[in-house]
Simulated scan of single mutants.
Amino acid sequence: MSKTNFLSFLVPPLPYFIEGNITTYQKGDWHPNRYNLGYFDVIIVKEGLLHIGEEDEAWKVTENYALILEPDKHHFPIEACTEQTSFYWFHFQTNSTWCAQSSPDLIVPSTPIPELHFHSEHTTIHLPKIQKVVNPHELFSKLDYLLSSTLKPRKLALWEAQQTFVNIFQSLEHDQNNKDSSSKLAEQIEIYLKQNYKNAITNKDLEAHFHVHQNYLARCMKTAFHRTPLEYLMDYRLDQGRSLLLQTDWSVQQITEETGFSQASYFSKCFKQKFGMSPKNYRQQYWKPTH
């Protein structure tokens, strides 16, 4: 069984907050022994030390550390507290796909997001299973605000609690500084391709721009996005073409030129390979004639 270092969530939709509080244990107190809670349990120690296990893993969660326990596993105390220990805890859940991983790999969605009016990409958010909080005082302030918001009238509490939770969730996300150089390079390539997709781009162009051999560029992109740079570029161009088919009345030739393809016939061929129908037929399935 591989060790869980990250919990990865496919968004949208975003996970949502359920409940939370701050708890203080005295010396000799034990954390509860629980099975199959049905939601994620986040524990952030403010002072002291918790000895917690989950299945075949165990942690000493010390001051300013955050641990996430999974909804379908057995959580149990390893030993009683040896000192006064205060910790924030909150529960959350998601209706989307998530998984436990040894490394922060992308989750590939099983179905695309409908995009009749705009294009919204799936993103994988990675939370370390256990981490030292970078700015604990700032996070504690957010947690205090989250807990206070739950005491307000129900409708106001709903909006404030969920908005604050998203902010906290973002604070716990796998930090950019923890990414290795290949991941950072892959993201730079992604940005470059999105900014320049209307232009002709070759592997040699990428090599010259990033001053790195094209084979290494391809390896970085394959690791991060499961596609080479040119495969990513092709998919992005086709996604932009699909959006234009839905949002405009431009001809296929106009869309071809706008998305960086050299010939309408090649655009149509690639479009059909990806989406299973021609650009014309794809547009017609969302088009209703006026009388």
Rank of each mutant, 00 (worst) to 15 (best):
T4V: 13
N5L: 09
L10C: 06
P13C: 03
P13M: 04
Y16F: 12
F17L: 04
I18N: 13
I22E: 08
Q26K: 03
H31P: 02
H31W: 10
P32D: 05
N33Y: 10
R34D: 07
Y35Q: 13
N36I: 06
G38I: 05
F40A: 04
V45E: 03
E47H: 07
H51S: 13
E54M: 12
E55A: 14
E55K: 15
E57D: 05
E57Q: 12
W59R: 01
K60Q: 10
E63G: 03
N64V: 08
L67D: 11
E70N: 08
I78T: 13
C81F: 01
T82S: 09
T82L: 11
T85H: 02
S86N: 01
F90H: 04
N95R: 13
A100D: 04
P104D: 12
V108N: 02
V108G: 00
V108T: 08
P112I: 12
E115C: 08
E115N: 12
L116Y: 05
H117G: 03
H117T: 06
E121T: 06
H122Y: 15
H126S: 04
P128T: 08
P128E: 07
I130A: 01
V134P: 00
N135D: 07
L139K: 05
L139A: 06
K142A: 11
Y145T: 13
Y145M: 11
L146D: 03
L151S: 09
P153L: 09
R154Q: 13
L156N: 02
L156Y: 03
L156I: 12
A157Y: 09
E160H: 11
A161S: 15
Q162M: 05
Q162C: 10
T164V: 11
F165D: 11
I168Q: 00
I168D: 00
F169P: 01
L172G: 02
L172D: 02
D175I: 03
N178P: 01
K179W: 04
K179H: 14
D180K: 14
D180V: 03
S181N: 03
S181P: 00
S181G: 01
S182Q: 06
S183E: 12
K184A: 03
L185P: 00
A186H: 02
E187R: 11
E187C: 01
Y192T: 09
Y192K: 05
Y197T: 10
N199Y: 13
N203F: 03
D205R: 00
L206C: 04
E207H: 01
E207Q: 15
F210S: 11
H211K: 11
H211P: 04
V212Q: 14
H213R: 09
L217Y: 01
L217S: 02
L217C: 02
T223F: 07
H226D: 09
H226G: 14
D235F: 04
L238W: 12
L238N: 15
Q240P: 03
G241L: 08
R242V: 06
S243E: 07
S243P: 00
L244G: 04
L246P: 00
T248A: 06
D249I: 09
W250D: 08
T256Q: 11
T256S: 14
T256H: 05
G260S: 15
F261H: 10
Q263A: 10
K269M: 11
K269R: 11
F271Q: 06
K272N: 07
F275E: 09
F275N: 10
P279K: 14
K280C: 08
